[in-house]
């Protein structure tokens, strides 16, 4: 429990749950369709991943290193549980009159965005792990539209249709590389920001 609290997991859960519910509720009130627009869905998923990003390290990463724990395994497990929780959270909407998207879309986006978060944590340090999903959201929002070109599909994978192969490959790649990068321990010392 102390471990979870030190990593702000309760707050992260609250943030992810509240933001997702608020989005879902807002769309239920304002829209007449039965599926949330893919740009907003992608942003909701990115927001949930950013909440996870806050749990990727405690107050100081270098302190973690001093603990005699099997860190790579703990970290991989951490990501896996986060993935399961987020997928579950968004999948619940499939049972309601307003869904975030088809199941394939949700799982692909959660996996890809979470992978990118982990990758950013590995490359820039956990304090900056949210840079990745935020920048990707900006790209999605500005250039995001269904497109024929595979490169663009891969870049904006979060808003592509569920059956896009390039988008699926990009998300899977990010998930694998991100998990490996994060397991291998963040290189940068915490700067307190």
């Amino acid at each position: 429990m102390l471990h979870l609290r030190a990593r702000h997991v309760p707050q992260a859960l609250a943030v992810a749950f509240a933001a997702t519910t608020a989005m879902w509720l807002g769309w239920l009130v304002f829209s007449t369709g039965e599926q949330i627009g893919e740009r907003i869905s992608a942003l909701s998923i990115a927001l949930a991943c950013v909440a996870v990003a806050g749990t990727l390290a405690g107050y100081d990463e270098s302190l973690d290193e001093t603990g005699a724990r099997p860190w790579p395994r703990v970290r991989a497990l951490h990501l896996l549980i986060a993935f399961a929780l987020l997928s579950g959270l968004f999948a619940i909407s499939l049972l309601t009159p307003m869904r975030f998207g088809p199941l394939g879309f949700l799982i692909r986006d959660v996996a890809g965005a979470l992978g990118l978060t982990a990758l950013t944590a590995g490359a820039l340090g956990s304090q900056r792990a949210w840079f990745g999903p935020v920048v990707l959201s900006a790209v999605n929002l500005f250039w995001g539209a269904p497109d024929d070109r595979p490169m663009l599909q891969a870049l904006t994978f979060m808003i592509q249709p569920a059956d896009s192969i390039a988008a699926g490959v990009a998300a899977a790649g990010l998930a694998v590389i991100g998990t490996l990068a994060y397991m291998r321990r963040p290189r940068r010392p915490a700067t307190g920001l």
Partner: peptide, 25 residues
Amino acid sequence: PSRFTAPGLTLITFMIGAALQEFDL
């Protein structure tokens, strides 16, 4: 003052912008 504020604020303002484009509010 929370570690979730900066990314949360960014993404929520993204959403507001996108939502204003999607709906006639």
